[in-house]
Design a protein around this nucleic acid. Structure first.
Lengths: 128, 128
DNA sequence: TATGAACCTTCCTGTTACTGGAAGGTCAAG
DNA sequence: CTTGACCTTCCAGTAACAGGAAGGTTCATA
């Protein structure tokens, strides 16, 4: 199938699929007219990539996961390590954002938001 | 003062300070030897930038905040709008990350993480 | 048969917010 | 006088694509 259909079936934009080929994540066949030609297994990989990316794995992590996925002799512990490390990162991000949220909420509530020039938000930003 | 001291006082790397000058956020004087020469107000602005960036404002938003900060006639409502919009964004990010966290945690717990090749994480990634 | 739309191709640039490094000038101390 | 710590400019690279130009292919339709 052409890239348009592979895009539709995998949920990835054609631009992204070409990019993934550029960086060596997938290698589709070529038709006689020069068009990329994707098989069912290619679409499978593309869906794998789509899902892993949306779960917060970087492209390099996806490359590792894909290699593990294709390696029948790998241990599931290898995969679990990658996922567990990512989980810790996500927890940290959530903590940081929550703290940020509290600070910002405090500032927004403290600001009366009227036509007068004094503003607690700017005051805090310039002093903090 | 030279860029090194301005860096130390503002908490921003010298590279970042030069970058902020490149994109027109600050305009320090120059000494006779060509070195950048920062005053107390420059350091004040740099600290403002540092803090706003760490609160999740983009550089362009910081530019707006800085302009509002320097404009004595601005209304505090303008600032409040920017901060409130950012608050909504942060909430959305937290929600997305939390959902992500649940999915990943589920996967990590489902995986026994041993030497055998079957792995629920990869299975879910390839099917989801 | 011509033509137009809807595909596809490669290549180049731009995005965000910096970071790293090369090549070279300046300054204070020993 | 040289060494080391500063400083300067400029160029390239990062992550993960997105947008667009210029042009080839295919298919349906007038």
């Amino acid at each position: 199938m052409n890239i348009g259909e592979a895009s539709g079936r995998s949920g990835l934009p054609a631009k992204t699929i070409r990019y993934y080929e550029d960086i060596g994540l997938i290698r589709p066949d070529r038709s006689n007219n020069g068009y990329r030609d994707y098989g069912a297994d290619d679409v499978h990989k593309l869906r794998f990539l789509h899902r892993s990316r949306s779960l917060g794995f970087s492209v390099e992590e996806c490359r590792q996961l894909l290699a593990l996925y294709e390696d029948k002799s790998r241990a599931s512990a290898d995969v679990k390590d990658i996922a567990a490390t990512k989980l810790i990162e996500i927890d940290r991000k959530i903590r940081e954002l929550t703290e940020l949220r509290h600070t910002l909420e405090h500032l927004v509530h403290a600001c009366h938001g009227n036509e007068r020039p004094d503003c607690p938000i700017l005051e805090e930003l310039s002093e903090g």
